Simulated scan of single mutants.
Amino acid sequence: MSEDVPALDALDVRILQSLQSDDALPVAELAERVSSSKTVVWRRIQRMEQLGVIRARVALLDHRKVGLPIMIFAHVKMTRHDRDVLPKFIEAIQLLPQVVECHTLMGTVDFLLKIVIASLGEYEHFVWQKLSQIDGVREISSSISLSQSVYTTQLPLRAG
């Protein structure tokens, strides 16, 4: 593996799989589940946090149950691809709390944004007053999610 991607052994994978299912497990219980000692598991977790394998340990919320029932995917095309236009767009998007994901794409669209919002009226305001006002935005095409049939944050890990 490259320097950017640390090699994960079988124990690392078992630890990560367990943490992806339940990050609130006490280290002692986690160690028992992965058939290792508390000290070894704790050290492995610390190492993976330092390497950035574990980016954050958070609570996953249901967007509908916190008053944000509408999920929208916005496809954004830029007017130009100057050296600083794309990074400035990304900086601006990071300041908008409604945007929960931003992906830079290859192809006919430059960015895919995942947005959660309380109402269509609020989204209309967001598009006109925020998103379309970012320098370089040429076109915004939106798709409203009707339902979410697959949702997981668990990665299909393997040792190697």
Rank of each mutant, 00 (worst) to 15 (best):
K88G: 02
A118I: 05
E124H: 09
V5R: 14
F111W: 02
V40L: 15
M1H: 13
A159G: 08
L113D: 00
R138P: 00
I144N: 01
K114C: 05
Q17G: 09
L155Y: 09
D9C: 06
P69A: 06
R57G: 04
Q98I: 01
Q20C: 05
R57L: 08
R158A: 14
S35E: 15
L112S: 03
P97D: 14
M71V: 12
V53H: 03
R43E: 15
L51Y: 07
E49S: 11
A74S: 09
P87Q: 08
P156D: 11
L155M: 10
S132I: 04
V53E: 02
E3R: 12
H81G: 13
D62I: 05
A24D: 12
V99T: 02
T153W: 10
E49Y: 06
M78N: 02
D110F: 00
V34E: 01
K114H: 06
G160V: 08
L155N: 11
Q46Y: 13
G136D: 04
T39D: 10
A7R: 14
V41Q: 01
G52S: 06
I45D: 02
L155V: 14
F111K: 00
L25S: 03
G136S: 08
S21A: 14
A118S: 13
E101G: 04
H125P: 01
H125C: 07
L95N: 10
I45H: 03
A92K: 03
